[in-house]
Each structure stands twice: as C-alpha cells, then as structure tokens.
Amino acid sequence: MVIARMSDVVKRYGTHLVLDNVSMEMGEGEIVGLLGPNGAGKTTLLYALTGLIGVDSGEIELFGRPLEDNPLETKGRIGFVTQEVSVFHDLTARENLEFFGGIYGLRGASLKQRVQQALETVGLTEYANRLPSRFSGGMSRRLNIACALVHEPELIIMDEPTVGVDPQSRRHILETVRELNRQGTTVLYTTHYMEEVQAIASRVIILDQGHIIAEGTISDLVEQIRHEERIRLEVTDVTEPLLQNLRSLEGVKGVTVEGRVVHITTQVGSGNLDRVLAAASKAGGVLWINAERPTLEDVFLTLTGKQLRDGGEE
C-alpha cells in the first residue's frame, strides 16, 4: 500500500523555486532516507507532504486520500519530529508526552500506558518527572521523538533528528527508528549523516535544487556509479608536480586534496592502483594507499557535485 504520494509538486517562495515538479512515493513499512545538500528543499518537501505549507501546484496524497480531504484526521496518523527540539521546557518529560498524547486523542489508562511505552522506547523512564531544561541535547532530542510516537502513528517523519547529539543518543535514536519500523511504522528520515541513511534506510531519495535526482535502494544507487573507482593516497608532502602526475594518468577523472590525503577518482579498470602508486612514488614518499568501492557518499558527490555536510542547516 502506498502511504504517501507526491505528484508533480511545485513550491515557490516568491520567485525562488524550491520544489520543482517533485514526484515520489512511499510504501507501507519502508524507511526512506531523504538526502540532499543544504538548501535542496528537504524541509520544504516534508512540510508540503504533511500539509504544513501549501503548494503552488501538484497533488499530495497521504494514506490513499488527497491531503486536503481531512487534514486534521490525516495529521492524527502522522508523527512529525521537527529539526528544532519542540518540547515544552516548562513541562516534565511525562507531562510533555501527556500533552501531545492528549492532543492526539489518547485518554485515561491508554494515555498512561502509551506515555510509559514512549518513555521506555527512547530510554527516558528514569527522567520522566524531570524538566527538559535540565536534559542534555541528546535527551531532549529523544524526548522530541517520543512526543511524535506517543500516539503510535502509521507514518513518522523525522527532520534531522540527530543534529548535535552525542554518539550514544544517536545510536539510541537509530535503534528506535529500526524498532518502530519492525513494528510496522513507515519512516521518512532526513539527515546530513550519510552513515545513518546507510544504517537504517531501505530506500534513498536524493534531492538537489528542488529536483529528485536519484532514488532507489542503496545498492541500486551505488550500482549507478560502479564505473568509477576511488583511490586514497596519503603522502609526506602534497606538491604540484605530484598532482600533475596524477591528473595526467590514463583514466583519472578527478583529483582532490584534503590535508596530506589525495583523493583520486578513476574509471574502473585494472592497474589503476599500480599506476597511481608509481606516479606518487616518483614525486615523494607514500605513507599509505587504498582503493575503495563506491559508497552512498560517492553517489551523492557524483550526482550533486557537493559534499553532504558542507556547512550549516538547511
């Protein structure tokens, strides 16, 4: 069953085109990772999908019905984890969950039970009666997530839920997403962290400048750029003759430098590693060298020409 569908959605802010004929679908039980560089339109896409902002043209369906049919009923089936921590700092963790659960229509014993379950899911049971103003960043983010899942939504939309959290909380959040998915919840997950998408997503959508430029499973996407190979080389000294030598090699498509590490993108073919090593050895000392298979990061870089984490928030 298709949970969410966008067809030819266009959204402009003034003259700035933010979503340009975006079409996508999400099936029940999927974890879809939405990737894109800063300003790609990811947050706008999420807001449009949940009816928080109107669109200029196109159609959006959620749970098989046009979004505008019964927006309040539709919102009740979604849990939205915003990029900003949106809990009330003057209510305890439990009170926050009771507030949000109550708005979603939970009452009495079922509310209490769901609040307890949500606290357990995000590992905040011990802190239930504390104010979030005393929480660490990671704990606040976990509470933010708990508030979105207290009513057991069919679809959870997470907009960069791990920004600024410690590794322990990040692991906890990712495990929570997996557990929710195992229980049948569909998840749309936006992040700047490629490794998170690789860890949890069953399908990836890459958005750039308001266009969906690629979508599929991670292996599908990696397959698209299998014609390339990446070689990393650390040298004692990065010199211009070294770089010229490398650039002039047959099959080399690009050379970039990061400190003393040189990244070389070549066409797939035998002998690349030997040729690069020989050229580098002529120009100075080689500390180490390795050839890497393409990753999702490489797919992203190849398709958008940008690093995923190249600055501030969208």
Binding site: T50, L52, L72, K75, G76, F80, S86, I103, Y104, C147
Partner: peptide, 13 residues
C-alpha cells in the same frame, strides 16, 4: 517560533 511547525503538525487547530 520554529516550534510552531510541531504544533501545526498536530490534529489541533
């Protein structure tokens, strides 16, 4: 404030 998006996402005008 940015929190408004969370409140706007609720089934609650």
């Amino acid at each position: 404030s940015p929190r408004k998006w969370r409140l706007y996402s609720l089934p609650y005008p």
